[in-house]
């Protein structure tokens, strides 16, 4: 199952500026409301920040954590993320205006269109590449910028469940050096865990779109892990 974070898609709009901890609290509460069986939590990119924070409150049914090219906040490339976020916010303010036009919305979402199935892209175009969607994305970017120093100062507890981190192998052209640093810090992070595994995947950042079979396999592996092994790692 999946969900729309508050402010996105079919979830209610939010006037407040939510932080990563709010998103984690929502995730925990949502899981408590709708999930009764052991489960694997899958998170992509900045979702990794949310998931790692949420994992603290998701025991004991959390069978595993699967992180897809997550944000490693300790990497030096995030030292200046507040500055980066301000620049991104300015760019997205332009995008927010542009996407009032559907043809321009299709243009600015071209990269997404190329990697996702048509029906998924159609939902994204309708829900995310509209002014309200871009406005919410800007809010979440601010949340990430605010969370990075907080998470560095107070890192989430190490997950006691098995954790698999899939790292995208293909950098964006011109960002190879930044990509290598991020991958290195992803690896370092997962290798500190009592039961963590780092795996490089032939993919760009959207691993779930480019390599859904690998993602499904790793989810299945984590679900199939023997309960006694889970207990030992807890």
């Amino acid at each position: 199952m999946t969900y729309d974070r508050a402010g996105f898609g079919l979830s209610g709009r939010t006037a407040a500026q939510l932080g990563i901890d709010d998103m984690a609290a929502d995730l925990v509460a949502m899981v408590e409301a709708v999930v009764s069986d052991p489960f694997v939590l899958v998170a992509h990119s900045m979702g990794g920040l949310v998931a790692r924070r949420a994992a603290e409150g998701l025991r004991p049914h959390l069978r595993g954590l699967l992180l897809l090219d997550p944000t490693p906040e300790s990497a030096p490339v995030y030292d200046t993320f507040a500055h980066t976020a301000r620049n991104v916010d300015r760019a997205m303010s332009v995008t927010q205006a542009l996407v009032r036009s559907r043809s321009l919305a299709r243009m600015v979402s071209g990269k997404i269109r190329r990697v996702y199935p048509a029906d998924t892209y159609a939902a994204m175009l309708a829900e995310d590449f509209v002014p309200a969607g871009i406005a919410q994305t800007r809010k979440e970017f601010r949340a990430v910028a605010a969370a990075i120093p907080q998470l560095r100062a107070e890192p989430p507890a190490l997950p006691s469940c098995p954790t698999v981190l899939l790292s995208a192998s293909r950098p964006v052209k011109g960002r190879e050096r930044q990509h290598a640093v991020i991958a290195e810090y992803q690896r370092r992070r997962v290798e500190t865990l009592p039961d963590g595994r780092f795996e490089e995947v032939d993919s760009g950042h959207f691993i779930q779109a480019e390599q859904p079979g690998i993602v499904a396999d790793r989810v299945g592996e984590l679900l199939d892990r023997a309960p006694d092994r889970h207990s030992r790692s807890a």
Partner: peptide
Amino acid sequence: DRVVLRPARDWDVPAGTRCFRCWRIEG
């Protein structure tokens, strides 16, 4: 139009299976 990977234990994942929605912020 809102589907993610198939439910746990139903792992018959054909090519092009839809995936979960975590694209909110491009990385």
